[in-house]
Design a protein around this nucleic acid. Structure first.
Lengths: 154, 154
DNA sequence: AGAAATAGACAACCAGGTTGGCTGTTAAAT
DNA sequence: ATTTAACAGCCAACCTGGTTGTCTATTTCT
């Protein structure tokens, strides 16, 4: 199977991403977060990292502010974040992660790490780290970019 | 940077997939196929591999037959495939790839391979093949699965 | 012959994005 | 100090690529 095609390489990347993420989603559902999606994780990570308002979140996620606002709405009524008026800028609303939100993030991160640990077990720690380093070369510093309607499937 | 997190691993996989596929899409646009999407490539590959009707295509792509039918409609009016009555089953419509469709596939595959070649140049051929083999372990024999609305971004 | 399975079409819906236009607030330029 | 520009959030309409569910016509199984 010497020389695979470039299209196959794409499918390998997509497929392994899917498998990883599906496992996490399923396990999260099993642990009491049935309708949580990986994108919520990513959004909350960005919020925790300082994107405390819709416009900024949009920038970090490489998505329009309207899309970011929709995501925040979902997180709001699932009880994972709160929004209050910003003390020194009346235009902004400051987003904050709730205790329940933090709990979800802890759980999600733990599961992600468990799955990664299984990969490490299968490949060997050094190998996995090498794989990550190699992939990192091709990702560069691109932002998360969850944009474009269903782009991954297109 | 010893131990990355599992969530980062997911982002690496997703990010490198995106970068690869975006390059192909852009280059394809530059070469005269402005609105072609990777999913068209995948669908056409499945058709070429024998999925010559909507229901079968759906099965191969792990998608409902309705979704497959929609994809076929798009391919039809872009002129990449034709649909005619099936000679020995009046229920079916037989899908066939047109000359223009084949040209698109050739072009797309060539570009995919070029991008992969750049990766090989950067990593070394042996390293890239090792990476592919490792990813293959985690993909297993899962079908392409382009299903679930925008799942990759969720 | 009659029942069950299959192919395809149609319609309604959903998620997660997009653009564009709007108001109010803040910051910058004259 | 005032005008102007930029920015935050909101609303509405729309797009894509999926999803159910229902229906008819044709085949296949018994």
């Amino acid at each position: 199977m010497a020389s695979r095609s470039g299209a196959d390489l794409a499918l390998l990347l997509l497929g392994s991403y899917r498998n990883l993420v599906d496992e996490v989603t399923n396990e999260l559902a099993a642990r009491g977060y049935p309708d949580s999606r990986p994108s919520h994780e990513y959004a909350m990570r960005a919020i925790r990292a300082g994107a405390d308002n819709a416009s900024e979140l949009g920038r970090r996620l490489a998505v329009t502010k309207q899309a970011a606002a929709k995501t925040i709405t979902v997180l709001l009524d699932r009880g994972y974040v709160t929004a209050e008026a910003h003390p020194d800028d009346a235009r902004r609303k400051r987003i904050e992660i709730t205790e329940r939100g933090l709990a979800l993030m802890r759980e999600g991160e733990a599961i992600f790490d468990e799955v990664r640990a299984r990969w490490a077990q299968r490949l060997g720690v050094a190998e996995l780290e090498r794989l990550e380093a190699q992939l990192a070369q091709f990702v560069g510093d691109s932002p998360i970019r969850l944009d474009a309607p269903g782009w991954a499937a297109q």
